Each structure stands twice: as structure tokens, then as C-alpha cells.
Simulated scan of single mutants.
Amino acid sequence: MPGHREGVVVHGEVVKRGFDKDLFMRNDLISMYCRSGDVQFGRKLFDGFLSTDLVS
């Protein structure tokens, strides 16, 4: 499993390439931050997304 630093780099690429609009990608980003120990930022992402679903 990638560490927090690698996750931040991946998050940047996701946003840069426009994939952050995809609901599945959003859920994966939230999950990645929570699994890497940054639950507060994962929650911040969750709260910042306008559209979520039951899985989120």
C-alpha cells in the first residue's frame, strides 16, 4: 500500500488530469487518505464533495 506522500502525489495527478470529477475516484481518494492515517483530510474531502452516494 502506498504511503501518505505517494498518495498526495497521486491525488495531485488525479486533479491535474480531471479525474477528480469521477465519483469512484473521489471515493478512492477518501479511502486512500483514511487508510494512510489522515482521517481528518479524508473527512475534509468527503465534506467538500457536492455529490456522494451510499457507498461514500
Rank of each mutant, 00 (worst) to 15 (best):
M25V: 15
K16E: 15
D47T: 08
D53Y: 02
G12H: 04
R5D: 08
S51C: 02
G3V: 05
D22V: 14
G3T: 05
V14E: 09
K44T: 11
K44M: 09
G7N: 08
V14K: 14
R5Q: 08
D47K: 09
F19L: 15
F49G: 00
D53S: 08
Q40M: 15
S56I: 06
R43I: 07
S36R: 10
L50D: 12
E13T: 07
F24H: 09
R5L: 06
L29W: 03
V8G: 06
F24A: 12
I30M: 10
N27E: 01
N27M: 01
L45I: 13
F46P: 02
E6N: 01
D28S: 09
S56L: 08
V9Q: 13
L29S: 01
P2Q: 11
R17F: 13
F24W: 04
G37S: 01
D28K: 06
M32C: 05
M32P: 09
G48P: 09
L50Q: 10
G37C: 00
I30N: 05
R26N: 01
R35F: 07
G12K: 01
L23E: 00
Q40F: 13
M1K: 07
Q40H: 14
C34H: 03
K21P: 02
D53V: 01
I30G: 04
V39T: 05
P2V: 14
V39S: 06
E6R: 10
Q40L: 15
Y33W: 05
K21M: 14
L54T: 10
V8K: 04
K21N: 12
K21F: 15
H11Y: 11
R43Q: 13
H4Y: 14
L23V: 07
S36K: 09
G3F: 03
L54C: 09
G12I: 01
D20Q: 03
G3A: 05
N27A: 00
F41T: 15
R43Y: 10
E6D: 03
F49M: 12
T52V: 03
Q40Y: 12
P2Y: 08
R26Y: 01
G48N: 14
L29C: 02
S51F: 04
M25L: 08
I30P: 00
K21W: 15
G18E: 15
R17T: 12
G7T: 07
F46D: 07
N27C: 00
N27P: 00
I30D: 07
F49N: 02
V55Q: 11
T52E: 01
D20P: 00
F49L: 02
L23R: 05
V10I: 14
Y33D: 02
R26G: 01
F49Y: 13
Q40C: 15
V14L: 14
S31M: 00
C34S: 11
H11K: 09
V55H: 11
L45E: 14
M32Q: 03
K44V: 06
D20V: 01
C34K: 04
S51H: 08
H4N: 08
K44D: 12
L45G: 14
T52G: 02
L50M: 08
F24L: 13
R26S: 00
G7R: 06
I30W: 06
S56V: 06
Y33N: 05
L29Q: 03
H4T: 10
K44P: 03
F24S: 11
L50Y: 05
V39L: 06
T52M: 04
M1N: 10
S36E: 11
K21A: 14
R5K: 10
Y33S: 04
